[in-house]
Design a protein around this nucleic acid. Structure first.
Lengths: 242, 242
DNA sequence: GGCGCGGGTTGATCGAGATCAAGGCGATAT
DNA sequence: ATATCGCCTTGATCTCGATCAACCCGCGCC
């Protein structure tokens, strides 16, 4: 699990909580930033802990400071689909909704910086530009949800796995310019990958070894992935630049 | 195509454009409503017309006044996935983004009430509560996108078709309380249903006749559907209340 | 040491849905 | 009437991914 922390984007302090550059902090004036800093409360979860369940009250909003969180929905009969994965800097919870509609679970040890809902919403109401900031983030989430719909509905198992790896590689690349290759630690188990991609564990495993034997990736310790050429991976993913 | 118009929710006038109750108009003061009304420009599209393509500039935002619009994304090799369907009253386009990330196409004849982007954004900036209104709509879209991800990733063909019918039935029910049965006209062709559900035309057709022979639905004219008991359909959809 | 356990891989088989192919039906045109 | 076209259905067959089953490996535990 160490590798995940290592490859996380650089952080800067924000009232005891480290917030990545893209987090909501950055678009604020110094005064507002101070107000946000003042209300942030650190919380910690171990790998596997539930942060919140489906359809329950969630009194906080939070920035993910470190670690990886998976968001999932479950059918009545237990079938599960992961609908999103959040990394350091991502925002968890939504204003205007105090009921959750999906489960959030720590995949690695997770640090959150939590803001009590009432106080946060008051700050949003009082702060010029903060609502827009959150709105834009929601639109980004909407776009990625829709891209994932294309993957789930129309792509093959090989393409799904390749595109998943590509996504992780891109996330980990952070600000650094586009490199030819990449090396990173997978934050998710094969089972979680399967739930994200709408496949079974066995199929994910087979496609991983297939990509390996094809020479597109190298695998050590089951979780450490080296990509030879990101372009090749993109081609295997069905040609997807974004 | 006539039936679609018939079953569309009731409308009220808004500067030459009819807007359903849930549309943005309702949450405004009389003055703001007037401003919105003043900038609305009617536009008309025939069935099959493209309203906007993937990744192009779109200078308007719009309310769907009547008809049905499908939103889709296409893979480089041509595979298509429908990511959403909009009915009368739904809002098309987004503030803070003048580039589209998916295609919008009229499925039936469509009337839009268009607002020029610059003027609309100015109104949003000046109008208390309008941004929140749009934000909430975006969150609803995000929720339904995520529910659809579960369907695409984890449900069988039969469940997919049943849930699609259930969704259409619910949309058409509008304000009227929950009835035992339902009767409506399908707005989409079998091919479009397939693209929405991540299936092929043949599979959709087979599952439709299967639901018919099982006595869950009745089909006339290929497009007119009668549901005996919505509860049964819900059960076939994998148990989904929402 | 031996043991159990969680996570991953691999093989054999099965089956749901894709693919290929043919034909029906209603609407419009000739 | 006949032809054509778009949309839908139905049948035959194939294939990809699911399912069932065995096994490996690393690790903590008794």
């Amino acid at each position: 699990m160490e590798g995940v922390r290592e490859t996380a984007p650089k952080t800067d302090r924000c009232g005891g909580c480290a917030i990545r550059g893209v987090a909501i902090c950055t678009s604020l004036t110094e005064g507002d930033r101070h107000a946000l800093r003042a209300m942030g409360q650190p919380r910690h979860y171990g790998a596997g802990d539930t942060i919140f369940g489906e359809d329950e009250r969630f009194g906080f909003l939070a920035n993910v400071v470190s670690g990886v969180v998976k968001l999932s929905k479950t059918l009545p009969d237990g079938r599960q689909q992961i609908i999103g994965v959040e990394f350091a800097g991502d925002f968890l919870g939504r204003i205007y909704r105090d009921r959750t509609s999906f489960r959030a679970e720590a995949v690695t040890p997770v640090h959150l910086c939590c803001y009590p809902r009432a106080r946060f919403e008051a700050l949003v109401a009082a702060t010029r530009g903060l609502e827009e900031r959150l709105f834009r983030d929601a639109l980004d989430e909407l776009d990625s949800a829709r891209e994932w719909m294309v993957l789930l509905g129309r792509q093959s198992a090989r393409e799904k796995v390749a595109r998943f790896l590509q996504m992780i590689a891109r996330r980990n690349a952070g600000g650094c310019g586009p490199a030819l290759g990449a090396r990173f630690e997978l934050p998710l188990s094969r089972a979680d990958m399967a739930d994200f991609l709408g496949l079974t564990v066995e199929t994910v495993s087979r496609q991983m070894t297939r990509l390996k034997t094809e020479g597109l990736i190298r695998i050590s310790n089951n979780r450490i992935i080296e990509v030879e050429d990101v372009g090749d991976l993109e081609a295997a993913a069905g040609g997807w630049a974004a």
